[in-house]
Simulated scan of single mutants.
Amino acid sequence: MLWADRITARRRMGCSPFFAVTGCQPVLPFDIIEATYLAPPPDAMPTTTDLIGARTRALARRQEDIQRIHSRVYQARIDAARQLELDHPTKIRDFNFKRGALVLMRNTAIEASLNRKMRPRYLGPYVVLSRNRGGAYLLCEVDGSVLDRPVAAFRLLPYLARRAIDLSWLDDPRYLDISTERIREMEASLDAADDEPQALDDAHRDSPLS
């Protein structure tokens, strides 16, 4: 069953996982009789050189196949995101946090655990430094400790403080624990940060305050 699943074409990819990895179509038992290995039948018994040459030409086209698969999968993801926006127009909000805004980060690491009931659903508050080219946010603690990776926008909610918090130190690079060059490098990244910062979530979970 696992073998049959790997040689079945995926709708989003337009090919089978076997083809995406190897660059050639899988050979099934009936292909030997019916389709002659899915290749044009030779005029005579092929030599080893001819056989290697045919397989080399198939592998030479693999990069083009990989690019075509990537384009199909990427377009399918875009279409799925647009459909999600159409299906949930009242639930999806783009807060577009500005520099210095206080936010809470959803603790997505606990959502699949069975004992999540008593764990904190949100972490923070954090301070927004900027937003990278991929749409993810660069955050830091209120003491200037910058998180080691961007955070996806869907994980953040605005933090409504009861009174104003002095964030005048934010414009002074001396208070941040990383260099300005590193911040610029993170801002130029196209990483959308749809993966979970597992290490950060685990650190909060294991801390005495959790």
Rank of each mutant, 00 (worst) to 15 (best):
H88L: 11
P46D: 05
T49L: 06
T90Y: 12
L129P: 00
L59A: 03
V27F: 05
L156Y: 02
A152Y: 00
A112K: 15
D87I: 12
N115S: 14
M105Y: 07
L160W: 12
F30D: 08
L84H: 09
Y37F: 15
I78K: 15
L84M: 11
K117T: 15
L157V: 13
I66D: 08
T8F: 04
I110V: 14
G100I: 03
P42Q: 11
P89R: 05
L190N: 07
P17G: 11
R155E: 05
Y159P: 01
A203H: 04
P125Q: 03
L104F: 12
L139G: 00
T49Y: 13
R162K: 12
E187N: 08
H204S: 04
I183Q: 03
T48D: 13
L104H: 05
Y126M: 10
T22D: 05
D87C: 15
E196V: 15
A76I: 03
T47L: 13
T56A: 03
L190M: 09
A54Y: 02
F95H: 15
Y159G: 01
R62P: 02
L176W: 04
S71G: 11
R163I: 13
I92V: 13
L138R: 02
D31M: 13
D166I: 01
E185S: 08
D50T: 14
P125F: 02
G124R: 00
V103C: 04
V128E: 04
Y159S: 03
L209R: 07
I33N: 10
T108D: 08
E185L: 06
I32Q: 05
Y126G: 01
V103Y: 01
S145G: 09
P173R: 12
P150F: 04
T8H: 09
V103G: 00
L209M: 07
P150T: 05
L114S: 12
R131N: 03
D166T: 01
D177S: 08
Y159N: 02
A152I: 01
A136D: 06
E187A: 06
F19C: 04
A101W: 00
R133P: 00
L147I: 11
C24A: 11
D50H: 13
T36N: 13
W169P: 03
I92Y: 07
A203Y: 10
L2A: 07
Q83E: 15
R12P: 01
L190S: 06
R116C: 13
N96R: 07
P46Q: 06
A193C: 09
L167D: 00
A161M: 04
A203Q: 09
P40W: 07
R184C: 03
T49R: 06
F95V: 09
Q25A: 08
M105I: 12
A9V: 15
D5M: 12
R155L: 14
D201R: 11
W169S: 05
